[in-house]
Design a protein around this nucleic acid. Structure first.
Lengths: 248, 248
DNA sequence: CGTCCGCTTTAACATAAGCTAACGGGCAGC
DNA sequence: GCTGCCCGTTAGCTTATGTTAAAGCGGACG
């Protein structure tokens, strides 16, 4: 199945994720893998990959590393609207709307593949299942966005942070990035605050509380969930919106 | 252009909206109009059209009336995650994910058209621009969802409600549902509270404040915006995310 | 014509979360 | 080995928003 010597396994996360959404045929997988090395790129941590208002005319696949989507108000208040984790795509189809309504910044060093619009459209036309998988990615993104609206609108700080942790854990699982009950959490507390709509101080207090409750350990950018079920209960986490049935 | 005697003008809102996203050829428009009367349906106010977890296998187009998407936590806290206004679609492509991750309820009496998946896919295959228009609808929905995340995460109550009002006004404009500086707002304060993540009491206080500031008049389910620019400033409303450039 | 009911409004009080400020620890660079 | 900087942490005080409760108000309905 691996056919490109130079990028051995580099597309692994993407393939695993897509297979969880729509099982891909070997042919579909090969076509996707083939498109990746052509547009392979890297970026360091804290780099702005694209800003609000920028024109879009390609699709990106995250091979490794974390990014996040965010918007900033005139007076500087920033909100992270979503994280983009390994295996996920930025902006499939977004070129249809011409420009970005939000910015994307890297949290860690990342490797990603950029597929130009024309190339992408050919790929979609030729591989129906692949097209559906990308479509699912986009829909799932909406579903996650809706869950974040609930998180910010109706959950208290403790539940909110707990929920975010559950979600990240469950999103990393299908791409093989959880190790037992631990996963990487390579972002600052400022980022977590901006993702949960809290002030940094309160985000910190909340994390302390989560630690004190024995539900999690968070140290050296590694999150360990001591009791996932209990954490989900505390977060009022309702499974399902991530649609990872097939992913086990 | 009108060819169906019985549904005279019923698809007007949908066509206006689509034209604002992707100018449709007469042929595309005709194909869409043709699909509508077949699945024409009505519902009263407060009806649950679909619940979380329900299977989806059709696309709906709202011809008239308001609906909203919402999720409810186990303990009853409810969050409206978006309104669905006349001319907008529910769930284009959503059938790809099999089931709903949220519920849809009507706020007013509504008329809508239901297009079954098979029919919809044929329509998409035959009309590229129409397919793009539906795709844009889906993407726009995501963009709105992101803006709601910012609204709930980083705006204070006053800004939040002001922002919602600006958004609704701008979303109703391209479908011809604003009249001067007024538009319908056929929802209760409880609904507004659930959409803005506030308690009813505080939502009410905030609306009073908005009235006192002279920015709006809200009476008999009609919203009048006294000074749209001022309201947008107060809301830190950044145009653009609704992509209504072409709609003027 | 009175009663019920859903919606809005007000009041009084409770509290979660914000803000400002300062300190500590680790790590990179000089 | 000192210095600076980023990040996490803690403290003390402020405030926006939630909660509970009750009253007003108008329309629907018998």
């Amino acid at each position: 199945m691996r056919s490109h010597g130079t990028d051995g396994g580099v597309a692994q996360a993407v393939l695993r994720r897509f297979n969880a959404l729509r099982p891909l045929s070997d042919e579909d997988a090969a076509a996707l893998e083939h498109a990746i090395p052509e547009g392979l790129l890297r970026a360091g941590p804290g780099e702005d990959l694209i800003a609000e208002g920028d024109p879009v005319d390609s699709v990106r696949l995250v091979l490794s590393g974390w990014m996040f989507r965010h918007k900033t108000l005139e007076d500087g208040r920033r909100q992270i609207v979503n994280f983009i984790l390994p295996g996920e795509t930025c902006d499939a189809h977004a070129y249809l709307l011409s420009t970005m309504d939000h910015a994307i910044t890297t949290a860690t060093p990342v490797a990603y593949a950029e597929i130009k619009r024309a190339r992408f459209e050919l790929l979609m036309a030729a591989h129906r299942t692949l097209a559906e998988a990308f479509m699912c990615e986009t829909l799932l993104n909406s579903a996650i966005q809706r869950e974040w609206v609930i998180n910010l609108g109706r959950r208290a700080a403790f539940e909110r942070v707990a929920h975010l942790f559950c979600e990240i854990f469950e999103r990393l699982r299908p791409v093989g990035l959880v190790d037992g009950n631990s996963c990487a959490l390579p972002v600052t507390q400022t980022d977590l605050a901006d993702a949960t709509g809290l002030s940094v101080v309160h985000a910190n207090r909340t994390i302390q509380e989560l630690r004190a409750s024995g539900l999690i350990v968070l140290k050296d950018r590694t999150l360990t969930i001591r009791d996932l079920e209990a954490l989900k209960n505390a977060a009022m986490y309702s499974p399902g919106y991530l649609r990872l049935y097939r992913a086990k």
